[in-house]
Design a protein around this nucleic acid. Structure first.
Lengths: 245, 245
DNA sequence: CGTGAGTTTGATACCCCTCAATAAAGGTGG
DNA sequence: CCACCTTTATTGAGGGGTATCAAACTCACG
């Protein structure tokens, strides 16, 4: 048998303790998922965790709340979503048994979470989790931080892709590039577009012609101006932000 | 002028070693990015890494290639993309200085990567990286695996969102649910839809009406049948897969 | 059994994709 | 350095798919 899940004969400790699964990173596993926690890890996490139950439709945590805990789903389905200004919802992910939820940024939950079906899971306080992480190896912990960062960015990409109007996508794309420059302490006087219009279209899910037309529309609305095809100046940050809803 | 990139004429130790940045996970940092590697980590990684250069437009690695190394960008911009069957491209992410690229699944690169501008970076062999990871703490390593898994799934979500035709999105969504069930060793006789049509629409970026119509279209084409509103039977897996391109 | 949320079906308008042509920019070699 | 050529970007016209609004219908739950 596979060594996944720690299921000796019949008496399945599996499922009564925290558990996560994933497809292998570097080793071929034929598309199957492997259980990641060792018995020791499961046991240790069980000690600091509590079992929580959520009825169908109930709310698990809300975007912006202090991220005190992560949740490990035992049974049921959870949706992770963002509520937009126009009261519509964008679902970032559906999560199932053996998944983790509770991605944070700067101590706050990035998304909201609600139970799609009845849910049973483990609530793992981050305070307890932190003491178990990176005890000897900072490198691991730092890579975890980087992966969380990429995950948040990929989720934002999904939000951009979910928009229907081309000008909205382009506006969000410009804001993304600007914040990237700001994060790298570069000037935000101009937004630099190193990629082609086709690349932009392939990223935000529209045709290059639509990219071009959207730029023109934003220019005509007085939101941006072009120094050249690769350098945009954002004139109306307010309007640009409001476009993104 | 800016301190980023750091290859003025020769001499900056800054940027001459591997470096990654991210917004803080649990501590407020005002949206700024923090550098994650310690000096020791940077130095250790530098020992096993080599500096690589890519000219604008050149190819860094290709989807499906053996994932021998990850890359840490020093300067320049990289696009990570998938080439679809119809020869179109879907760009998964743009990557900049202090980012990592080379996400793998079962030992193979998930996406392709190409230089959008001239790129200088570090090539870090995974063999060397593995020896530095999880030496004392398996827990950290296992969480890294889970995060990589979630990252891949979020990228697949983005691919779904990038499709324009509603039926294609719904077809891919069904395949996703089916593979989830298969991964959890559940029956794939029926695909179970625990969520509402509105939830599905909010996830794949279409209206609930379009979800309903797409289901009907797939049913009329003989690809699926409904036991009830929550249970779908996939009759033509071939056709369903071919729809997703 | 009744009520309300969820789902299906229909009609219309709008936005974007597609195809096509022109214009501009970047790169190459003489 | 310039001419040439290829790639990229812009602009235009037409058709199709989806959002939106509205209404009938089904189902789950109390």
């Amino acid at each position: 048998m596979t060594d996944s899940g720690g299921d000796m004969n019949g008496k399945r400790t599996h499922g009564r303790r925290p558990s996560i699964t994933a497809t292998a990173l570097w080793h071929a596993s034929g598309g199957k998922r492997v259980s990641l926690f060792t018995d020791a890890e499961s046991t240790q996490l069980a000690l600091v965790s509590s079992v929580v139950r959520f009825k169908k439709g109930t709310h698990i945590y809300h975007e912006g709340d202090p991220a005190d805990a992560v949740f490990n789903i035992m049974t049921g389905v959870v949706k992770s979503y963002k509520t937009l200004l126009d009261r519509t919802h964008h679902i970032v992910a559906f999560l199932f048994a053996n998944d983790l939820i509770g991605l944070a940024e700067e101590g706050k939950y990035v998304n909201s979470a609600a139970a799609v079906t009845a849910v049973i899971g483990y609530k793992i306080p981050v305070a307890a989790l932190k003491t178990k992480l990176g005890r000897e190896s900072d490198l691991d912990f730092h890579i975890i931080c980087k992966l969380c960062h990429e995950l948040r960015e990929t989720q934002r990409h999904g939000l951009m892709l979910s928009k229907h109007r081309a000008a909205v996508k382009v506006a969000m794309f410009l804001q993304m590039l600007e914040s990237h420059q700001a994060a790298r302490n570069e000037s935000t006087e101009h937004v630099y577009l190193p990629m082609t219009r086709s690349d932009i279209g392939d990223y935000i899910g529209i045709s290059p012609e639509a990219v071009s037309r959207s730029f023109k529309a934003l220019k005509n609305r007085g939101v941006i101006t072009f120094s050249d095809r690769r350098h945009v100046k954002i004139v109306g940050r307010e309007q640009l932000a409001s476009i993104g809803s």
